[in-house]
């Protein structure tokens, strides 16, 4: 017992405390520096895109179609929206059903396999999806460069996001509400459509917005599926190429014309603005839905 009561000795207490404070200071400093580095990169990118984009913005962009490397962006804006919405339309039914299945009937092996594969599908590079759609739909099915091929590519890319966000949203619906509905004799479908989905709607919308933002910002999977067109979309699903904004950014910035650069900057500003606005909206939805529950 006596040994335990022996006084604890601190070798050089002053120096040790100093060293610890120095380590603390350095540690926090480096962490802050990392944050600052990322923050300034964000500002740098946004400032470049906004400044150059604003000086290229023009009302003609919204009223004219592209002529060669000049003119407006009306065809590209329309094409981007058509392709992205087409992708959502294709991805929503299976995506939502997967979310419902994983959240409500998560028992057997199938659910865990599907969840795992959805996660793996997120990681498949978008260019691989694009090349698959190119060899399958554009060549083998004979669709040609078209709105349908582009939308299928975007749907495959957006599908896992819709799956997982709707699963999470439906999972947060209180069990007691659903049990009460079941106790009243409601069927599976009725519980899903009248209880789970309405409550989970903000979360599901977040997933759709996320997929929309990804679709609007994608380039690689569209280059060899949608190709590019100077004209407005005529409503044909196949055999007709369609333009989109990100193509303008990629292809026009390397052209040696001032007008082409202006179009690329304007397109970059429009795409970035769209993605940021969707990001803010979905974050607000997320906050509101977590408050509601």
């Amino acid at each position: 017992m006596a040994a335990a009561l022996a006084p604890i000795s601190f070798p050089h207490p002053g120096r040790r405390a100093l060293r610890r404070r120095l380590a603390d200071f350095l540690g926090w400093g480096l962490c802050g520096l990392a944050f600052l580095l990322l923050g300034s990169a964000t500002v740098w990118i946004l400032v470049v895109i906004f400044l150059r984009g604003m000086s290229a913005l023009h009302l003609n962009l919204l009223t004219q179609v592209t002529q060669g490397t000049a003119g407006g962006l009306l065809n590209a804006i329309e094409g981007t929206l058509v392709l992205a919405l087409g992708g959502i339309l294709l991805a929503l039914p299976p995506g939502l059903a997967t979310g419902i299945y994983l959240a409500e009937y998560d028992r057997g092996r199938l659910a865990s396999i599907i969840r795992f594969l959805a996660d793996v599908l997120v990681g498949v590079p978008s260019i691989v999806v694009g090349y698959f759609v190119y060899v399958a739909m554009v060549i083998a099915f004979g669709w040609g460069f078209s709105m349908a091929a582009g939308s299928v590519a975007l749907a495959i890319i957006g599908l896992p996001y819709i799956c997982r966000t709707s699963e999470m949203a439906i999972r947060q619906v209180p069990r007691s509400l659903r049990d009460a509905a079941f106790a009243l004799g409601a069927s599976d479908a009725r519980v899903t459509f009248t209880i789970s989905l309405p409550i989970a709607l903000p979360g599901i919308t977040t997933g759709i917005l996320l997929a929309l933002a990804i679709g609007v910002g994608e380039t690689a999977p569209l280059i060899y599926t949608a190709d590019w067109s100077n004209y407005l979309w005529t409503g044909h699903l196949t055999k007709e190429p369609i333009g989109y904004l990100t193509y303008v950014i990629y292809a026009f910035i390397t052209q040696p014309f001032e007008s082409a650069h202006a179009l690329a900057y304007a397109a970059a500003l429009l795409v970035t603005l769209f993605v940021l606005i969707i990001g803010v909206i979905s974050r607000m939805l997320l906050v509101r839905s977590s408050r509601a529950l």
Partner: peptide, 12 residues
């Protein structure tokens, strides 16, 4: 936001 900025905008 860095994750939300599209790849092609990074390229630009």
């Amino acid at each position: 936001l860095l994750a939300a900025i599209p790849s092609v905008v990074y390229g630009l």
